[in-house]
Nucleic acid binder design. Structure first.
Lengths: 254, 254
DNA sequence: CCAGGAGGTCTCATATAGGATACTTAAAAT
DNA sequence: ATTTTAAGTATCCTATATGAGACCTCCTGG
């Protein structure tokens, strides 16, 4: 089904660029013959997935995608439930607040409030992180897996070094995961990105299952190692409130 | 290109239902032969636009759409700029706050904070309103058009009665539009929906062009005719702040 | 334990979507 | 004013995506 595949490629291409693209550039980038591309862009435009700007052949993503994105109800309950708590956290800490969840075995950022530190952490809503072992939320998910599943996952992705602080051996990781279970939060110390720390806490749903993670992210100059436990208490508090709002049985684990 | 067209139909179908759909239901609803649908769903699933739930053949929209939705940068600057001001409005008024803009000659709701009145106004982010003359934001857009363009638009859509309060004749509408220009806000009195009032103000960008509208919506029992001017001042204040943040020259028009 | 129903795959003849080429239009550029 | 570049349309032959039907496999209910 070349038409469909190409259409999805076009959409991905438009999503990957930060500017609108002219017909010819799409054509060359994806190696699609002109008449075919014309048909595809015509249909996508008609359906609102793509918009033509300037009436002179520049294309960009269309508003229909905003609508479709808004209609993903499943994980969006978590999102809407968490929103007010995230805002409170953002207000009290001034830091970047992130909400993530698992979807199709991928860790997805589903909401974010940028802190006032002027440091952009350039993760994008909807983007997936591949490195579970290098991310607070990923470590939390790993910590909640049964041992076998975890081993399988780790075997598949390995433990690539993302920064020089990334945990690189299984024993150390296992120790850290136990620690996470015991303390009820994860600490990420420049393991995904040099100069950025995170404190992350798990959110549970009404079945007691891990529904997602909320995290505070900040550059190291305003998130020192000493701040760790304070901020951890703060995120844990927020996570507990969100879990409660999700209908989780109130349980005291730290 | 049946594959593409059908794929888009599948996505729209999944978006239109509030539950996950089984293979067979999609098949019958859209009249797609089994192998074709299998191919389409396979590809859409692979690309993350659709997700299979429960491992037992239920389909729903996938997270990739969240990502794509988040990548619509064009109008999203307005959205992120407006967010904090919307939140402040929501906090001080307790009412539903709406942000809308024009895209492809359609009025689109691009952000929304629900009020605590328990009354759902059931408009969805990303959805388009067809009736310019029956909506605060639509009237503002009409008021900003040059006379000829406005006539053309009105000729195309007519003035259908949406509720018994909808403005139904051109003279009355023109009078109201002049009023909007003079006062710097629009009042919508159950013209789109029985029992709902709105106060809406225009937001301008750095070129002085109309960038969007911010509105306060509320059921009539907590938004009486007498509240009108107070709430108008409040939205206008917010709109002014957002315009300023958008880089508009600070101008005092009311 | 068997039957029924659903999701999903395979095969292959054939209708049809695709692409090479040529043409039209229109805006820039010389 | 003429040329060039790019978007988009039209045509039509052919490579290929499609769909009927058969088949597989798993679950569920009798």
């Amino acid at each position: 089904m070349p038409a469909l595949e190409r259409a999805l490629d076009v959409i991905d291409l438009l999503a990957s660029r930060d500017r609108d693209l002219p017909f010819s550039e799409i054509m060359h980038a994806l190696n699609i013959p002109k008449p075919s591309l014309a048909r595809i862009l015509g249909l996508l435009t008609e359906r609102g997935l793509v918009t033509k700007t300037d009436e002179r052949g520049l294309y960009k993503l269309g508003m229909q995608l905003l609508y479709l994105g808004g209609r993903i109800e499943s994980k969006l309950r978590l999102r809407s439930v968490a929103r007010p708590h995230m805002e409170e956290l953002a207000l009290t800490t001034g830091k970047t607040i992130e909400l993530s969840t698992l979807d199709r075995d991928q860790l997805i950022l589903i909401d974010q409030i940028e802190g006032n530190e002027g440091v952009r952490l350039f993760t994008r809503i909807g983007s997936a992180y591949p490195y579970f072992h290098a991310i607070g939320a990923g470590k939390i998910y790993l910590a909640h897996m049964e041992r076998n599943k975890r081993k399988e996952v780790l075997r598949k992705i390995g433990l690539p070094m993302v920064t020089k602080h990334t945990i690189a051996n299984v024993e150390q990781l296992e120790r850290e995961l136990s620690d996470i279970v015991a303390k009820g939060f994860a600490f990420e110390d420049q393991e995904l990105r040099e100069g950025v720390r995170r404190a992350v806490a798990p959110i549970y749903d009404s079945h007691g299952k891990l529904a997602g993670c909320i995290g505070i992210a900040s550059p190291i100059f305003s998130f020192t190692y000493e701040d760790k436990d304070d901020l951890a208490q703060v995120v844990k508090g927020a996570a507990r409130k969100i879990s409660a709002d999700m209908g989780a049985a109130t349980q005291n684990n730290g």
